[in-house]
Design a protein around this nucleic acid. Structure first.
Lengths: 133, 133
DNA sequence: CCAAAACACCGATTGCCAGTCGGTCTTTTT
DNA sequence: AAAAAGACCGACTGGCAATCGGTGTTTTGG
C-alpha cells in the first residue's frame, strides 16, 4: 500500500465504516445510510467516496454507469496502519518502541486488556504457524 | 487529561522529543538543538513550545523572566493517547477491537513482534501485581 | 430516437490548524 | 537609564477535509 501520509476526516471514517459493514456500496446507498443522517448531500458523499478511493482504501467498479465501492483491506489492516503512522513520526515510537508504547498503553488503560491481548497473540501465533524457537 | 482532539505537527513532535530527551528545556536551547538544524527561527520554536503547553503536553515554570518547559507525561503516555485517539474515532476500534487491531497489525507487520509483545505483557503484568487467575 | 433522470467529474469555497514571524511591551541585566 | 532577552499578540501562508454547484455523459423510459 501507499506509504504516504494517511489522514482521515470524520465523514471519511463514517463512510468507510459503512462500506466495511455493508461489504460494498454505491453513493446513493451510502448517502441514504450515512449522509442523510448526518445531513450531507449526495455530492458530498460522492466526493468522500472518491477521496477514499484515491487514498487506496476503497476500490470501485463500474456497474452500469455508476460506481460500486468495495473495501481494499480489512478494518484491522487500516486500523493497524493508522496506529503505525501515528507512532512512526516519533523517533521513540520506532520498532520495538511501538510495542512498548502499546503494552504500556494497555496496562495503563486497563490491566485486563493485557490478558486479552495475550490471548489474541496466542491466536495469531497459532494461525501463522509453528513457533520456530 | 484533556479529552479534546490532539493533533501534533512535525515541528511539535520534534520539539516534544527534544524536551523528553533533555528532561526540560527553554526556548533558546530547544532552538539551538532543534530549530537551528531544521531552519526554524527562535520565535517559531517559542510558538511551538507555547502551543505544546496549551495542549497540556508541556508544563512551564518561570525562571527569572524566561520559561523552562518540562514534560507533563511520559513518552509512553503520550504515544498511548495518540493510539487511543486515532482509533477511538472508529466505532470498530472501540475496546476489544483495539486490541484485535493491534495484534493483527503486529502479526502482519512482523510475526516476531508477537513474541516481543508477549514478553512486554508479562513484564507489565508483573509490575502491576499478581496475576489473579 | 429523444428527453429526463442518474451520476461522474471539475472546480470553487469555507473552516481549521500547524508553521512562521514581525512587532511591541515587559523584565533583566549592565 | 539604556540595552538585551524574551513573552505575548496578531497576521499570513499552506494544506486538507468538508461541501456543493455546474456541466457533461451515460442510462433508461416512453
Amino acid at each position: 500500500m501507499s506509504c504516504s501520509e494517511l489522514k482521515l476526516g470524520d465523514l471519511e471514517i463514517a463512510v468507510l465504516e459503512d462500506i466495511w459493514h455493508a461489504g460494498q456500496g454505491e453513493a446513493r446507498g451510502v448517502h441514504a445510510r450515512v449522509g442523510a443522517v448526518r445531513g450531507n448531500s449526495l455530492q458530498t458523499i460522492q466526493s468522500t467516496l472518491e477521496r477514499l478511493h484515491r487514498k487506496g482504501l476503497l476500490a470501485r467498479e463500474r456497474v452500469s454507469h455508476a460506481f460500486v465501492y468495495t473495501p481494499t483491506g480489512s478494518r484491522e489492516a487500516v486500523l493497524a496502519r493508522l496506529i503505525e503512522e501515528s507512532l512512526s513520526r516519533f523517533s521513540s515510537g520506532q520498532e520495538g518502541g511501538l510495542m512498548a508504547a502499546f503494552a504500556g498503553y494497555a496496562s495503563q488503560a486497563d490491566p485486563s486488556l493485557l490478558d486479552e491481548l495475550e490471548a489474541l497473540i496466542e491466536h495469531h501465533k497459532r494461525r501463522i504457524g509453528g513457533d520456530p524457537s
